[in-house]
């Protein structure tokens, strides 16, 4: 087995009640790459992303079979889900900072893990905000509520919050869909700088975005992975007719 493979799914099926949302997904996701999922609405790309840190546990009607191997361990097996989520962080579509201070937002995760030392927390908060390119903008208002930040700043705060946990993988579920172009550009820059330390998996509706930032791209349609390849190949020389139709804007 390739040591660089972070996630490996084998024949993954997912059902919402009777509806099959994911059909026999086999995918290998490599370490320290940006992998993008594209596809029309309702194609299962977000559902798949949420499988990777078991966020689908929150939905009662979901049934999963097949395997998701993360660093050699099946995450639907006996693995501790809390531990999994500290290693696989997630950033959501809408910025969701907690209604507390900026500092507390970043310190929340580490505190939940039992970190109490004030100095360590201070350093961690500063480092995380710096990595998320937010430090300069908020360093004077760390104790102000995070809700006072702009949408783009809030989303970078959420990324910083995830980084503070020092995860191996960061999942991003359409992280820029609620943001304006300038904020989007900032987040994209951030992603490319984070690539060297983290494995990033991003769901996006914008094909341009996938083209700009990702190393690999997977095209989802009706719960199936139609094509998964190097990004330039997907966008310039797709192997499947349906991928080409989607890329060229014939549907979706």
């Amino acid at each position: 087995m390739d040591a660089n493979i972070k996630f490996n799914t084998k024949n993954l099926n997912l059902f919402y009640g009777d509806f099959q949302a994911l059909k026999a997904i086999n995918m290998e996701i490599r370490e320290k790459e940006v992998t993008a999922f594209i596809g029309p609405s309702g194609c299962g790309k977000s559902t798949f992303l949420r499988c990777l840190n078991r966020m689908n546990d929150l939905i009662d009607s979901v049934k999963i079979n097949g395997e998701i191997i993360f660093d050699g361990q099946d995450i639907n097996g006996t693995i501790d889900v809390i531990n999994l989520r500290t290693r696989v962080g997630m950033v959501f579509q809408k910025p969701n900072p907690f209604p507390m201070s900026i500092y507390d937002n970043i310190a929340y995760g580490p505190k939940c893990q039992g970190l109490k030392d004030k100095n360590q927390l201070d350093t961690l908060v500063k480092e995380s905000l710096m990595k998320a390119a937010l430090w300069e903008e908020v360093k004077d208002r760390l104790n102000k509520s995070a809700l006072g930040l702009s949408g783009g700043q809030q989303q970078r705060l959420c990324i910083a919050r995830t980084i503070a946990m020092n995860p191996e993988v960061i999942l991003m579920d359409e992280p820029t869909s609620a943001l304006d172009p300038i904020a989007t550009a900032k987040i994209e820059d951030l992603m490319s700088s984070l690539k060297k330390d983290y494995t990033i998996i991003i769901v996006t509706h914008s094909m341009q975005q996938a083209g700009r930032i990702s190393d690999k791209t997977a095209f989802f349609l009706m719960g199936e992975v139609i094509e998964f390849n190097e990004t330039p190949i997907i966008f310039t020389n797709p192997q499947d007719k349906r991928t080409e139709d989607y890329i060229t804007g014939r549907f979706g």
């Binding site: 809390i82 969701n96 907690f98 995760g109 919050r161 995830t162 946990m165």
Partner: peptide, 15 residues
Amino acid sequence: VPMAFREGSLALGAT
């Protein structure tokens, strides 16, 4: 209380 807060917290490895 928005579901997003619960998800955000759980995704950070909180119980």
